[in-house]
Design a protein around this nucleic acid. Structure first.
Lengths: 327, 327
DNA sequence: GTGCACTATGACAACGTTGTCTCCCCCCGG
DNA sequence: CCGGGGGGAGACAACGTTGTCATAGTGCAC
């Protein structure tokens, strides 16, 4: 900036005025300054600016489990859209379902003085966030609630969705339904399992633990589960996939199987409608999740001090075929 | 920081020494300082730190067309992985295939003094980058080359891949092959079209422009193209989808059609193997693309001054079924 | 001619850090 | 007993900006 000032023969304050479009600069002077800026390729340092102004940094942080997962990337996109409309940039990070990594990312973002943080929490303990939140960094939890603190949260109706899935299958005559979930440490997985139980109860199906698997989904793990649950005299006639990754692994496992049970997935996914049979899912609007969370965050950024909110977004069952077959 | 200093009864410089793990601090003093930090919830301001040190900001920028597109989100993930290994955070932005937006994002990132920029360019003119690059911000172009400047670039073998696709179809007896691309302004689309022509030539197929569509893919557009190209006496017996979005739209259009031509897609996608028939694709390693670009970027960040490099990653045809049917 | 309002500009401090330099104190060798 | 060396700590400036205040010049009314 001082280089520009020297070249234009003015003080750095005048340069500052020009780059900030402040009035009270003579047009001729402004033009000379602009020319100097152009010539030197000057670009003002936003870091210094934010430091001096004590204002917001114009960035927000988004932490998900894996930015490469289509579910989270759609979320990312929705968040970015809102952030852009508020003139903010988005810093992203993948926690890899690791609470230490999550914490590291959050604290790093805080040190960068992001204006707010959106997080799909991996851990169950968020006490470390209290000082940051007290210091004025708003945090909104997405898809899963905070572990041990009260904070803004946007969830989907995991319980209701799974109940609906069970009911749907029961309506088509299924009495032995398997549930393939994820690690029970993950809120959504635990919640959907709860929904599964509740769904069984409501439909007069005795809940059979041997038909449930709660493991981090891998192709082999799901393959084994399929072998175990879908064969033999007591085999399940239908199966619920607890999330989009489980669904993909399950579909792959079933593709080479001789026997195709009825299936309902939780989370919609691309091409689900083109498979054979098309996959019935409990769908929810991932974009809406991101939008709602980001809107809530920016409300906080702009000073909304109302008590923490908990938003639960609806889900709806999309019957495509895989869930509408008789046992 | 001065609050911490006051509380601990030391100077701010000593606090600085503690947070930076500098030696020459008495353990007792350090402990007092740590306690004060803990009590006040102090977190050092990285912006101020970077300003003072004149060092790197520890961030890089990544600009893609749409962070929500699985192709780019996989890229994003790969970039993030490398960035993390170099202790950097990633700022992401979607250009929406709009060169003005691309420029805006780049300049915004530069103003934030990112250590480097990775960009899947939307525009064809990148002169605006020259001052930034001269000022020391390395830029690596991904998937598409820079328009009018010389810069590091990482591409995939679009030409070779499409030639291979044509050859594959020709081998299975197809002589009338349609090509559904994307806007010809997009480098990869143009290049793949070039590969299509070359593939026709090499296989003794007369290139028929009426079998080519180069439009931004929409479900309707692809539907119309299917109706036009795959019906009538001169109908194509095979079709090449120019990228993953075209492929998805095409599959959806064909799902409800009475006639299924042979098909090969460019870009692999999840579940391609589970469709009926499984989709033959020209696959390439998106992660490798991100890795290579990020590695190259960090080499530049760390001072590599060698001439700009152009890396072309190989592609390979994955025969799954949809491309191995006779006319 | 004097005072006043207004425009255009600059000097300086401050944002939160850290690098450099200086200072003080204590220990040890001669 | 004195001098040198090293450990521990603080004062101060500087990073690149911008907010505040001061200053100089101009035009206009009296």
């Amino acid at each position: 900036m001082s280089d520009v000032a020297r070249l234009a023969g003015v003080s750095i304050k005048t340069v500052s005025r020009v780059v900030n479009d402040e009035p009270a600069v003579h047009p001729d002077t402004a033009e000379r300054v602009m020319a100097a800026i152009e010539q030197l390729g000057f670009r003002r340092n936003l870091g210094a600016r934010n430091l001096r102004r004590g204002s917001t940094t114009g960035t927000i942080g988004l932490i998900v489990e894996d930015v490469g997962n289509p579910f989270y990337s759609e979320l990312n996109r929705a968040v970015e859209r809102i952030a852009t409309s508020f003139g903010r940039q988005v810093l992203t990070g993948s926690s890899e379902e690791n609470s230490d990594r999550e914490r590291e990312l959050v604290l790093e973002f805080c040190a960068r003085r992001v204006d707010g943080i959106l997080v799909v929490p991996a851990g169950l303990q968020h006490g470390y966030l209290v000082p940051e939140m007290r210091a004025g960094t708003p945090v909104v939890f997405i898809d899963r609630p905070a572990g041990d603190i009260v904070a803004d949260t946007v969830l989907v109706d995991n319980l209701g969705g799974t109940i609906e899935a069970v009911t749907h299958l029961a309506k088509h005559g299924h009495r032995r339904i398997a549930f393939l979930g994820d690690s029970p440490d993950i809120f959504t997985a635990a919640e959907r399992l709860r929904g599964f139980r509740e769904g069984c109860v409501r439909n007069g199906i005795s809940y059979d633990e041997s038909l449930v698997s709660m493991r981090t989904p891998t192709q082999e793990g799901i393959g084994d589960a399929v072998k175990r649950l879908l064969h033999g005299p007591d085999a399940a006639t239908a199966v619920i996939a607890g999330n989009n990754r489980v669904a993909v692994h399950l579909l792959r496992a079933l593709a080479h199987a001789d026997y195709r049970p009825a299936m309902v997935g939780f989370d919609d996914f691309e091409l689900a409608d083109l498979l054979d049979p098309p996959v019935t899912v409990v769908a929810h609007d991932v974009s809406a999740l991101g939008h709602a969370a980001a809107e809530l965050l920016f409300a906080r950024v702009q000073g909304d001090q109302s008590p923490p909110r908990k938003v639960v977004l609806p889900v709806h069952l999309v019957a495509r075929g895989s869930g509408e077959v008789a046992p």
